[in-house]
Design a protein around this nucleic acid. Structure first.
Length: 118
DNA sequence: GTGCTGACCACGG
DNA sequence: CCCGTGGCCAGCA
């Protein structure tokens, strides 16, 4: 029997919700989102969700350019239309990026587990 | 149904 | 810092 919690932990759906909450000028990491959703090592699925989110648009749009790896590297930039689309999008929000690396990453880091504390 | 891959992360050496 | 290993979820041949 299914538990009363009919909510099917849609990892993708949860990821989209969290990524959409990332404010401009801030960046988050796959691991932080995965950890916030309860999957410490589920960061991989978060990256996969980003690729699926790339096809979304309108109210379902997800700012995947604000999600990078824990090192602050734009690992998914190659999945954007242009090799500089991701960096350009971040710089447009005031995030300095040099050689695919976010400057002041520690300050720009937006952790849902901390910012979205109940 | 099985096996593998993937925009990753943590741990040990 | 590098290297190797294990684990997570979803999609595809």
């Amino acid at each position: 029997m299914k538990q009363p919690t009919e909510q099917t932990r849609n990892f993708f759906q949860d990821v989209y919700e969290v990524v959409r909450l990332i404010p401009p000028g801030r960046v988050s990491t796959y691991g932080a989102i995965a950890h916030y959703l309860g999957s410490r090592q589920g960061a991989r699925t978060v990256g996969w969700a980003m690729q699926a989110a790339h096809a979304l648009s309108g109210p379902e749009y997800v700012p995947c350019h604000r999600v990078i790896n824990r090192l602050g590297l734009l690992t998914g930039k190659q999945f954007f239309g242009s090799p500089t689309a991701m960096q350009d999008a971040l710089e447009a929000e005031g995030v300095r990026v040099v050689e695919d690396q976010v400057q002041d990453f520690a300050q720009r880091f937006w952790d849902p587990a901390v910012e979205l504390q109940p």
